[in-house]
Design a protein around this nucleic acid. Structure first.
Lengths: 199, 199
DNA sequence: ACACGTCGGGACGCAACCGTATCGTCGTTG
DNA sequence: CAACGACGATACGGTTGCGTCCCGACGTGT
């Protein structure tokens, strides 16, 4: 009997509050104000602040995942980077995700939830990507999937979520090439070198 | 006339509080309790919560920086990774840094301070590392220092601060090699490939 | 022995938020 | 059109924190 429009408004307001003040300062009162809803309406739906956040974070991350099998390592990487960049370009996501990841270090419930919806999925996607590339002969057979994920996700996350520098198409192209060769793929092209200075 | 031991106790307590509850929930009262000090003693030294945090964060990051000129790209990377890993292994640092980086997205004062003490230094160190490698002929002449920094710092930060997975010596060795070749250095060794499956 | 200034303790008024409870209202369902 | 239940508004007591102020107690330097 709970009205869906109000539930949706609460979810929307929570997302915005989370981005605006972070999990640490999050207050139910502010969520209610922002949603144009009474506190009562929130407490009818969730028991507490943590419940609310966990439910909504888990739901938000159950979105679509790309097929991600283009037939080449570089194609897969480019597609994955596009998806990650698209997600982290949303101002809300780029504020909420680092905030919750930091909070996860001290809140086991949040940590568990994020591991389910983010890390597990990353490992699954990254693992498949690596496995296929190994099968194609593009990557060494002894490639460690965990280490590969660090190398794939780390640079883009750093630039978008931490350094907050702009992202251009050519940057992404270069990143694909860097990560691919870093993982152990053959270089696409030889690249020009300066002559060593030592005589 | 302010007693140094008390100032030090406040700094220590602030660090611990920051790690325990994060910047969002940080309270002066809790810092005072933890330091075994009265609120008055804190307010005699700093005007507000933000002042306190900014001063101490800035001071903490003015620590030593490694000489970082080993003569080879891989040597420089290994040394840099050791330094980063050492810093992020401290439980306090590994909780505080992601927390403040997330908070920086919504607090301009924190953002400015972190850019001074972290990003600027990273760019300086990373830029020098890249410049030297280019001069030696180890890296392409058109290497973008900013992109290089993402590739260097991102994976290790991701693993230690976000994924919070363990770090082994062999992992670091592999990471040095991956990053070096990803940046465009020649591979140290050819690595075994599986035969492509397609017949 | 004296004066000075920091010290801890504690109280202040103000504000925000928690989670609960109680209203009368309104819309939906049947 | 009647009953039901979610709705907003409002208030509750309790907790926590802010930043300020005052106090008597050191203890340090002179």
């Amino acid at each position: 009997m709970l009205r869906d429009e109000i539930t949706a408004a609460i979810r929307r307001a929570l997302t915005q509050e989370l981005a605006a003040v972070g999990y640490g300062r999050l207050s139910i009162e502010a969520v209610a104000r922002r949603a144009g809803v009474s506190k009562t309406a929130i407490y009818r739906r969730w028991n507490s602040k943590l419940d609310l956040v966990l439910e909504i974070v888990a739901a938000a991350a159950h979105g679509k995942l790309p097929a991600l099998d283009t037939g080449t390592l570089r194609g897969d990487l480019a597609l994955l980077f596009q998806a990650v960049a698209h997600a982290l370009r949303h101002p809300l996501a780029s504020q909420i995700i680092p905030d919750l990841l930091a909070e996860a270090a001290r809140n086991p419930s949040i940590d568990a939830t994020l591991r389910q919806v983010l890390h597990a999925r990353q490992q699954e996607i990254g693992g498949r990507l690596v496995t296929r590339a190994v099968q194609r002969g593009e990557l060494p057979a002894d490639t460690d999937p965990d280490a590969a994920i660090d190398l794939i996700v780390g640079p883009l996350y750093w630039r978008l979520a931490i350094a907050r520098l702009p992202l251009t198409d050519s940057y992404l192209d270069n990143l694909v090439e860097s990560v691919a060769t870093g993982l152990g793929a053959d270089s696409a092209l030889p690249r020009p070198r300066a002559a060593p200075i030592s005589g």
